[in-house]
Simulated assay, not measured.
Amino acid sequence: MKIEDYSLNISDHQFKVKGYWLDQVDDFGRTVDYPVVVICPGGGFTFHSEREEEPLALRFSSFAMHVVVLEYNLIGKNPVYPTALEEMAKTVDWLSKLPESMHIDKSKIILAGFSAGGHLVAAYNGIATNPTLRKKYQIDRYNGQHAAIILGYPVTDMTVKGSFPDDDKILQQISLDKSLWKTQDLLNKNSKPAFIWLTRTDELVNVTNSLTYADKMAQLGIPVELHMYGSGIHGLALATYVTKKPGKNKYLNQRAAGWIDLVMSWLEMMDLVL
């Protein structure tokens, strides 16, 4: 495996991505083009959780997938959006233009978002598949398209009371554009299939987020699979010792740790694995 850092350019600044590239295997007797997962970690739009970066990247890599971690725009002098959308569009465009020597199956670009990163992926799934919205948010200049999305305990509706962000000031720092607050309203019949997982007892992001998003997809006839585990805290990541915070066993959840195997089974069903 090769691990490389990159700086990509959009209209007004640079942002970083990290690639985890699988090597070719001589024993296969031929070259192989692998699917690629773009990970958007959580962190409440104030930081990028490292627990949802390399540990997840290595796990996905073990299933024969390239991985790219996107360090998307955070709360700062300007709102997170629409810049984060352009960063995602640029990342997909960049992947679609990489040389054949990178051995990427460009028809199998999968976006995976966790917590706040899930909001970016959920929003992009509606905007990038709608020509009018692509133009509105100025991402129509970018090429490439994703094939599916994975959402882990995602923020999809920022207007749900008692759920993140539940603070008007923070909400404005994330986006001044109210049409981005409810990602389910951005979905259309061309949006891509989704796998969603969460825990019923999530103390930070109300389950209404995932349920509403999945329901809208079902109404539109878009393939969606949703798994809600009966218990577990927010931010489980892999829910194993790899992503457990020291001394905090609440980050271990044997049942929820099975989510990634279910994801891979779903991707196989959707013909999106090797």
Rank of each mutant, 00 (worst) to 15 (best):
H119I: 05
D168G: 08
D166I: 03
C40M: 15
Y251C: 05
L176E: 14
D105F: 02
G44C: 07
S231R: 06
G118T: 01
A122Y: 03
I170V: 14
Q184D: 09
A239V: 03
Y241M: 08
R255H: 04
K16P: 03
F45W: 15
Q138F: 09
I222V: 12
S175W: 01
V273G: 03
M270W: 09
Y124G: 13
N125T: 06
S163C: 08
P154L: 07
D168C: 08
L272F: 11
Q172F: 14
N206D: 11
N249V: 00
R255F: 00
P99A: 08
L58F: 13
S62D: 09
Q145T: 13
L133C: 11
Q254A: 11
M102N: 05
K216C: 08
C40G: 04
Q145W: 02
M1W: 01
L133D: 05
L151M: 07
Q254E: 13
A64E: 08
A256I: 00
V224R: 06
T83E: 07
W21N: 00
S101M: 00
P35Y: 02
K245L: 15
L120G: 09
E54T: 15
L226M: 13
M217G: 07
I104A: 02
F15V: 04
W21G: 01
I3D: 01
L22W: 01
L98D: 00
A64T: 00
G152H: 04
V38S: 07
Y6I: 02
K182V: 11
I39G: 10
A218E: 11
I10G: 03
T201E: 02
Q219N: 09
K77E: 15
T91H: 05
L74C: 15
T243W: 03
F47D: 09
I233R: 13
A116V: 01
G76Q: 08
F164S: 10
D177M: 12
G44P: 06
I75G: 12
K18M: 12
V17A: 06
F28E: 00
M102K: 10
Q172R: 15
L133P: 11
A89R: 03
V207W: 01
I222M: 10
L74S: 14
Q24Y: 00
W197T: 03
P41Y: 04
K16D: 12
D261R: 08
S191Y: 06
S115I: 01
V207C: 04
L58M: 14
K216F: 06
L171G: 11
